[in-house]
Amino acid sequence: MTDTLELSGTDKSFGTLKAVDDLSLTVAAGERVALLGHNGAGKSTLMKIILGLMPADRGTISVFGARPGSAEARRFVAYLPENVAFHPALTGREQLRLFCRLRRAAPDAAGQLLARVRLDEAADRRIGTYSKGMRQRLGLAQALIGRPRLFVLDEPTSGLDPVSRREFYAILEELAGDGAAILLSSHALTEVEAKTDRIAIMRRGRLVANAPLAALRSRSALPVRLHVVARAGDADRVAASLAGSRINGVGVDILCAPEDKLDRIGAIAALGPLIEDIEVAPPSLEDIYAFFSREERP
């Protein structure tokens, strides 16, 4: 599989601040990679370097084998900036037709794209009258012009309502299915948890994690939470025999290391009639993110 996007040893400093620090990352065709990190972790700077909007101080970056920002790279790359903006005096359709022409696509494709992001009714209103969510959807529409092979999306779902978010991820899935590579940043962790193939976490310009969620989960070795529902009146007994903590009249919480999970479940099952139900909750992406983005890891 050829890598659509390949960065190695990339550095970028602003004065004494290292915005991107010795970062290496690849995104392959058909892959959806979520880029996570606190504000100021360097996500947007990294994206601007990939797009060629900003030169890197050091490192090799290849976008389809071309230099970032070169005419060849730009033909295949679509960008959705954070808080995307357009000229307020133009209508959505006019703006999109312009972008179609710049990408050498038929301007009439604009209508279809607007319908795809449900902006067809607002297409002939000025962008100045659009809500943030509508501008964001127009931003997505422009990114779809001309079948790009790499999507760089900076907080694409901010300002979108829940329905639009679902539609957005459905479109992403379609694009990835079609073989496009997708790199998106987000603060909405629960969304990307289920909708991306790999998680990359940046902290102070460095990549501190870069793997599928399951692999990060096992690497972090964060405890699994077992929630046991005891039969009425038996919660104390269950809590005592499992060495767990009782959280209410019937519930008992047990934290255990991932490798002990099956043994503990066995022990719970052995209590037989005392147990009403059991739920297994692996560490969420929020837990894993907090773990990897912590300032000092032991």
């Binding site: 909007l53 995307v84 990408r103 931003g139």
Partner: peptide, 14 residues
Amino acid sequence: ERGTLALMLTYPVG
């Protein structure tokens, strides 16, 4: 200032 330049510069236009 509007932030429209960054997007424009990612298009295949010099």
